Computed example of a mutant assay.
Amino acid sequence: MNLGKTRLAAIVGATLMAGGLMGGVAMAYQSHMFAARNALYAARSQLQVSRMNKGGHRVAALQAVNAAIRQVDLGIRVGR
């Protein structure tokens, strides 16, 4: 298969651009994961300073937020 230099350069350029675009999408998605983790940290902080247990729901919410933080951390690691 004999490709001309111009055609080969176009193919290589298109491949590099596509890879760069995919990398940009991955980084954008990762930024959402970091934003979600920050929101979960804020939620946990608010739950921790709450005085009343609210019939056990505050403790359950803290456990759920902590579990969500662990899952987001795992997702961030996999996304790297």
Rank of each mutant, 00 (worst) to 15 (best):
M1G: 14
M1P: 08
N2W: 03
L3W: 04
L3M: 07
G4D: 07
K5S: 14
K5Y: 07
T6R: 08
L8T: 08
A9N: 12
A9R: 05
A10T: 09
A10F: 09
I11R: 06
G13S: 14
G13C: 07
A14R: 03
A14K: 07
A14S: 06
T15Q: 07
T15V: 07
L16G: 02
L16W: 00
M17P: 00
A18T: 04
G19V: 02
G20P: 04
G20Y: 00
M22W: 08
M22H: 12
G23F: 05
G23H: 06
G23Q: 10
G24F: 00
G24Y: 01
A26H: 04
A26T: 06
A26R: 04
M27H: 12
A28H: 04
A28V: 10
A28P: 01
Y29H: 12
Q30H: 11
Q30L: 10
S31L: 13
S31D: 10
S31G: 08
M33K: 08
M33A: 11
F34S: 08
F34C: 03
A35S: 15
A35M: 09
A35F: 08
A36T: 12
A36P: 01
R37Y: 06
R37T: 04
N38I: 04
A39T: 04
L40T: 02
Y41D: 13
A42H: 05
R44E: 08
S45V: 06
Q46G: 09
L47W: 03
L47H: 02
L47Y: 01
Q48G: 04
V49P: 01
R51M: 14
R51C: 09
R51A: 14
M52L: 15
N53W: 05
N53C: 03
K54M: 15
G55W: 05
G56S: 04
G56Q: 00
H57V: 13
V59Y: 11
V59I: 11
V59E: 14
A60L: 09
A61V: 06
L62P: 01
L62Y: 01
L62M: 15
L62C: 09
L62S: 05
Q63N: 15
A64D: 06
V65R: 01
V65M: 01
N66A: 13
N66Y: 04
N66W: 03
A67Q: 13
I69L: 03
I69W: 00
Q71W: 09
V72S: 02
V72I: 11
V72R: 00
D73A: 03
L74S: 11
G75S: 14
I76G: 00
I76D: 00
R77W: 08
V78T: 11
G79M: 14
R80N: 10
R80M: 05
